[in-house]
Design a protein around this nucleic acid. Structure first.
Lengths: 338, 338
DNA sequence: CCTCATCGTGAGAGCGCTCTCACCACGAGG
DNA sequence: CCTCGTGGTGAGAGCGCTCTCACGATGAGG
């Protein structure tokens, strides 16, 4: 293995100088820097990260914690991984992935407190997981993907649930729907809670909401189907689902009941997933940029690592995509598709 | 930060002894070991991995290299990641994920030669990527997921393409199909090459193959569709696709052409992916255990790290799953589903 | 001509761990 | 009683890097 000492010897300087030259220290003269660089290249020198890490207390590695579920089924998780990895590499950090299906108390904690990673990007689903708070209160800088219910003191990058839900609700109200039901996501999940809150706001506040028109799903196809069946019994004429998976379930439930979309019942989703937009019916949904969120969360973490103070919180814009599933008044037109 | 020195002091021993006690060294007396352990637990001591790594030359981290494409669309990549991570953790190793969409010459090489990872598990698609050979010939132990065309000197875990293809071909021949076409995968990909070779063998050898009945796809839906359209013009009565994605494309192409399955044309796939088995028609396919392959490749790497010599190569069994898409002679029955 | 910044460089400690080597105490064997 | 083996422990070097501190050379200002 070629070490810094080798480089120093062959470029006729000290290890100190060689180290500085390779790390862009302005104090080193141009001539020396060039010479050291040349030798390092020639030798194929690679700094040993363990040694550097031991010396600086920094490893140059960030951890990405992802619920296992996010990596199966849809490309969401994969996009996230790609975005985080790419952004981290851009900032000279490597990324280490943890899947949180094993008790994080074991695996995660193990590696979190031993100095392997400098910080964490965390994507959560079940927001009441106790270990999330453990991590947030731990010694490592953390940036969340999505908001965390009940905590305003943490850094995160999130999509804008407030404005997007307002726009969505305004749209269906304008289309003339009146018994607007919701298949919300799990209670305690921040995205889910926020979307529900704005749904309620649009209808005139929580007390104005008809309890029969609200069901709780689990962000998957099956719960969407089940919830929709129940909502149809309550005479819903529009079903607002908190994501596209559940919306697709709702679509199938409606069609299976012999009703038409949007003639009898309208449906909306969330996420604008490609495969689902392509499905049976063009789905009115909210488009947001998964990769941008991952990128932004990573940027936030890197900023914190560079010394930026306080919780950094950023909300990314979304856009309403109107397709046939809510356009009762018009001739159905293929608007979307991508 | 609590260091080994702290533990040693509070348990009234030396750093050397404390280190040995925590690492299960048999030379240390029971009493001392227990005492050290107790103190370590009480202090919440975590060994600093960078220091250990610097000292031992081992990091306890393995790298997993995955083509970006494998993480999008289907759960294949996610299952792989899960299996590798889990198996590695079992062997006290953490896993670091690299996606190879960036030129690996940059990112990968960067981190490979600096002592961060002890070894690599590599999953490849385009097997002619030059960097794969660079890695295989590099200083790090590597275990491949799937075979690598043209190299017998490397360690791998692979599914059995030979026996599975024989069984599959025997099945369709027995069903009475005679113009059996193939949508093979990319040339140079070992799985793809092997499957084609056995397809040819079953028909009486390479020279017995009708060139009009062989097309080259890219393992995705679109190429499956396109290839099938062309094969139908050559009067194929059975289309053997090298994976389920392409098989699904073929199914749609056949139906779009106004033909029936398996009445007019039979179709077979590979992989037995859940979503696809659920699709329009029950697909005869080859089931193999993705997670087992990932697990096995990781085991192999860990064995090599533990000192096992020579290339370790293991082939995992597959099973033929017969569903309606090839059963012309019988009344279609719902056989599969999982 | 001397003082004093300024710039560029070198010496060496230290990061936290492992591991070789040396040591001590004790009991068995001669 | 001395030697030797053995089980248990300690001292200390070393892993490869960074960074503080100190130093020498150079040039400007008095």
């Amino acid at each position: 293995m070629v070490t810094l000492a080798d480089v120093a010897r062959l470029s006729a300087t000290s290890r100190s100088t060689a180290s500085r030259a390779l790390n862009n220290d302005a104090r080193i003269s141009r001539a020396t820097t060039d010479r050291v660089r040349l030798v390092a290249d020639a030798l194929g020198y690679r700094p040993n990260l363990a040694a550097r890490s031991l010396s600086t207390g920094r490893s140059g590695i960030i951890g990405l914690i992802l619920p296992t579920g996010q990596l199966t089924g849809d490309p969401y998780g994969a996009q996230l991984v790609g975005a985080v990895t790419t952004r981290a590499a851009l900032g000279d950090h490597a990324t280490m992935l943890w899947l949180s299906h094993r008790e994080p108390s074991g695996a995660v904690h193990e590696v979190l407190r031993n100095g392997l990673v400098d910080g964490l990007v965390i994507s959560i689903v079940a927001q009441d997981d106790p270990w999330v708070n453990d991590l947030l209160d731990g010694p490592l800088p953390c940036a969340l993907i999505g908001r965390h219910t009940g905590r305003d003191d943490v850094s995160y990058a999130s999509i804008d649930n407030i404005l997007s839900t307002r726009a969505l609700m305004a749209h269906v109200l304008e289309e003339g729907y009146r018994r607007i039901a919701m298949i919300r996501g799990p209670i305690g999940n921040a995205d889910s809670d926020e979307r529900y809150a704005m749904y309620a706001e649009a209808l005139g506040g929580p007390e104005a909401v008809d309890a029969n028109l609200v069901t709780v799903g689990a962000f998957d196809y099956d719960s969407g189907y089940r919830c929709a069946k129940s909502l149809l019994r309550s005479d819903a004429d529009c079903i607002v689902a908190a994501n596209d998976h559940m919306a697709l379930g709702a679509v199938d439930a409606i069609l299976d009941s012999g009703l038409s979309i949007p003639g009898d019942v309208a449906v909306t989703g969330w996420d604008d997933m490609r495969e689902i937009s392509r499905a049976t019916i063009g789905l009115t949904t909210v488009r947001h940029d998964v990769e941008a969120v991952g990128r932004e969360a990573t940027s936030i973490l890197l900023e914190m690592l560079a010394g930026a103070a306080g919780p950094i919180q950023r909300t990314l814009p979304t856009s309403l995509v109107v397709r046939e599933s809510t356009q009762r008044q018009h001739v159905p037109v293929a608007v979307g598709g991508g």
